[in-house]
Design a binder for these strands. Structure first.
Length: 492
RNA sequence: GCAGGCGUGAUCCAGUUUGGUUAGGAUUAAGGCCUUCCAAGCCUUCUGCCCGGGUUCGAAUCCCGGCGCCUGCACCA
């Protein structure tokens, strides 16, 4: 069981993350990454890029701005739909989403109505506060986007983007040509998104400024199936919680035959990413299918990736696999007049989008939550490649030339790996420090080093050591960090 | 946003009820001595009452306002 406050304490004390602008009291929904958090986040992003861009030769990174003009978000639907109509009770001052109130009372779906239309319905039905029977205030529109004015006169209206996806959609056709008209095509990006959350809570879990890692896959349904079929192993097992079922269960991918191939293949790969690269146990990660009520209107199929995080009270969403159909490209085509369709078998077709979306901050927290260990030591078991430091180098004691030799070895190693050198305190103390920040390997020069040019390599998990020759260090560290070898396989 | 609780060195906590010596402890950190493998020991050292205002001879302590955090409710296209 991981205590959230204990983990937050470690994060602050050692340099992972903490509330932003804290010397001025902070502002809810914003977090800083310190020197270790930044390394951890960079490591996570590297693994993510390697894995997801590696799925297909035609999946690529792009970067687009944080600020979007009004029309882009008008087209995407965010100006009209990424907002809630709120009413307040004038007696007990509770606030409610007006559309929920009306739907609960009348059963009507009022999505898309504006504030005055909503208010009319409230008056018409003589609605009262459910908790105290008081009267309601006027309806107010609350949009979750941060609005901006662009330019000196401020006449160009814009917003901080509420999701990174729109940048990929708007670039679809230019990249389609630049990438020589290949389908499927994937545009991935890692960048900030902004939502003016009413009540940011739970540390880094719900932020007002957060980092998304997204891959938008453009494809023509039914024609690209062979490409996707080759991508995954139908015998691979995943944990799913399907809509309408009470319990998550293990299934083979090819049992999910109701899902189209393009979707099933990426679902399998997302699960593989968490099991094999984030080192999560099968019982700690699941794919949850959202019900019709939970899904956004444009999503045809939607599974969330959920990780069991005791520090946040259980299963929490860290990503989603969204089949958005042709909604996005069609909307941008209509608003901009730019052609988004491509020729297929003599007709023009607007490609469909499969979106793989990940909240980086949540994923970082998940890595820390699932990695935190408190036994006879306090330590972090991190995926080795994203650990802030891959390897630390120490002298056993600070005399007889051991310190100088350890420094020489460190200088060689740090060219290849994220490395750390320390000489303070006792060697045990230094191991303990590295345990606390999740450094997988520690190398110590001792009295045998000057005699036969060997050092000890210590494993964070078992605390065991093996003695290896200095010239072999780079290869050995590399094979452990990359997961090609387990520490236990090294010759003792 | 509402209700309740809370805010003390880097971290965690005592002190606030009943205002009154240099605000205490643990951990951590830095420098040194020592040290032949898992937070040993010794010496030295840094950092604090969330912010602002008020009451008072005197405020960490009482009052008002603000900010933040926690829990619940609401919210999370």
């Amino acid at each position: 069981m991981v205590d959230r406050e204990e983990l937050e304490s470690v994060c602050k004390r050692r340099g992972f993350m903490w509330p932003s602008s804290e010397i001025y009291g902070g502002e809810a929904g914003f977090y800083d990454y310190g020197h270790l958090g930044a390394r951890l986040k960079d490591g996570w992003e590297l693994i993510w890029k390697d894995f997801f861009l590696g799925l297909n030769d035609n999946y690529h990174m792009i970067y687009t701005p944080n600020i979007l003009p009004y029309r882009a978000l008008k087209a995407s639907g965010h100006v009209d739909l990424f907002s809630d109509i709120i009413v307040h009770c004038m007696r007990c001052s509770a606030s409610y989403r007006a559309d929920h109130l009306i739907t609960d009372l009348t059963g009507k779906n009022v999505e898309g109505l504006n504030a005055s239309e909503i208010e009319g319905m409230i008056k018409e039905n003589e609605m009262k506060c459910p908790s105290c029977n008081g009267n309601f205030s006027e309806a107010e529109e609350f949009n979750m986007m941060f609005s901006l004015s662009i330019g000196p006169t401020g006449e160009h209206k814009g917003f901080l983007r509420p999701e990174t996806a729109q940048g990929s959609y708007m670039n679809f056709f230019r990249e389609y040509r630049a990438l020589r008209r290949q389908m499927p095509m994937g545009l991935a990006t890692i960048g900030n998104a902004f939502r003016n959350e009413i009540s940011p809570r739970q540390g880094v879990y719900r932020l007002r400024e957060f980092l998304q890692a997204e891959l938008q896959i453009f494809f023509i349904p039914d024609t690209n199936d062979m490409t996707f079929e080759d991508m995954y192993d139908g015998k691979a097992e995943v944990t799913v919680l399907l809509d309408g079922e009470e319990e998550a269960r293990r299934v083979r991918m090819d049992e999910l035959e109701d899902l189209p191939v393009f979707y099933r293949s990426h679902l399998a790969k997302v699960y593989e990413f968490y099991r094999e690269h984030m080192n999560l146990a099968p019982e700690d990660v699941r794919l949850r299918e959202l019900s019709k009520e939970e899904k956004a209107f444009y999503n045809l199929i939607h599974f969330d990736v959920e990780i069991n995080m005791p520090s946040l009270g259980g299963w929490k969403e860290v990503g989603g696999i969204h089949y958005r159909g042709d909604y996005d490209l069609t909307k941008h085509q209509e608003e901009s007049g730019t052609k988004m369709s491509i020729p297929v078998n003599g007709t023009r077709v607007v490609p469909h989008v499969l979106e793989l979306s990940f909240g980086v901050d949540r994923n970082i927290w998940a890595v820390l939550d699932r990695g935190y260990r408190l036994d006879e030591r306090e330590w972090l078991s991190l995926p080795k490649r994203c650990a802030p430091y891959h390897v630390a180098v120490f002298p056993l004691v600070r005399k007889d030339g051991l310190e100088e030799r350890s420094r020489e070895i460190y200088k060689v190693i740090k060219r290849e790996f994220r490395a750390f050198w320390d000489r303070s305190g006792s060697v045990g103390k230094r191991y303990a420090r590295m345990d606390e920040i999740g450094t997988p390997l520690c190398i110590t020069t001792d009295y045998e080093t000057p005699e036969d040019d060997t050092v000890t390599v210590r494993d964070i998990t078992s605390k065991e050591q093996v003695r290896v020759k200095v010239p072999e260090l780079i290869d050995i560290i590399g094979s452990i960090i990359d997961g090609e070898k387990e520490f236990g396989e090294l010759q003792r």
